[in-house]
Simulated scan of single mutants.
Amino acid sequence: MFGGGGGLNPRKMEQMMKQMGIDVDELDAEEVIIRTAEHDLVFTDADVTKMDARGQETYQVIGTPEERERGSAGDAGGAGGDADAGFEDDGGSSGSAIPDSDIEIVAARTGVSEDEARDALEAVDGDLAAAVDRLE
């Protein structure tokens, strides 16, 4: 954005951005889903920065996404459609309606066994954030 600003220290950069009317906030995002026509990109441990430049908001997502079949990432906000739509045909190896990838995410995030993660996810209808909260 500033071209060749590699020599500026972060504090100086922040002061300059404030003078220009740009506010920067780090968001504590648990998951970011980008839906494309072909697939979903799911970031489970992303660093998200929100920049507000005089009313124009820009979000920067830094992390490595997991590519999933379109719609299989679930409905994070309930914005239209059935909240369980993302779990219909994905099915885990145990016959559960919860995808194995979600079970692995919760287990890795909380340090519990996959069985405990599956139980927590089933108790909260597949809501990743609620399952993590329940186990922490």
Rank of each mutant, 00 (worst) to 15 (best):
S93M: 07
N9C: 03
K12E: 15
I34C: 09
G111W: 05
T36I: 03
D84C: 11
H39G: 00
L8D: 06
G63H: 02
D40P: 03
G63R: 01
D52G: 14
A107M: 03
R118V: 00
G126F: 08
A129E: 12
R70G: 04
E30W: 06
E136L: 13
G80P: 05
M1A: 14
K50F: 00
P99I: 00
G95K: 09
S101C: 01
R70I: 10
R54M: 14
R118F: 05
D119R: 15
A37Y: 03
D84V: 01
V48S: 04
I33Q: 13
D45A: 13
K18F: 00
T49N: 07
A76P: 06
F43R: 08
D133Q: 11
A123N: 13
A120T: 08
N9H: 08
G21N: 05
V106C: 04
G55K: 05
E116I: 01
I22M: 15
T49G: 07
S96W: 06
G5Y: 08
M16Y: 11
G5H: 13
A73P: 06
P65M: 03
A53I: 00
D25N: 11
F2E: 14
D23Y: 02
V61H: 04
A73G: 13
K12C: 00
A117H: 03
T58E: 13
V32Y: 13
R68C: 05
E38D: 10
V24S: 14
N9S: 12
A131G: 09
G91P: 00
E67F: 02
L27N: 07
Q60S: 12
A130V: 07
G5W: 11
A97D: 12
L135E: 08
M1F: 07
E38L: 03
D100I: 03
L121K: 04
T44H: 10
G78L: 07
A46F: 00
D28G: 05
R68I: 00
L121G: 08
G71A: 08
Q60A: 13
S93P: 11
D89V: 02
G92I: 03
P99Y: 05
T64P: 04
I98E: 13
A117N: 02
D75I: 07
K50T: 00
D133E: 15
R35F: 03
G92D: 11
A123W: 05
G80A: 12
D28H: 01
P65D: 02
L41I: 02
S94L: 06
M20V: 02
L135H: 06
R68K: 14
I33N: 10
T110Y: 03
T64W: 01
S94N: 12
D119K: 14
G7E: 10
A107N: 05
V24T: 13
L135Q: 08
L8V: 06
L8W: 10
S113Q: 01
V124T: 07
M16W: 02
A129P: 00
A123H: 02
V112I: 04
A46C: 11
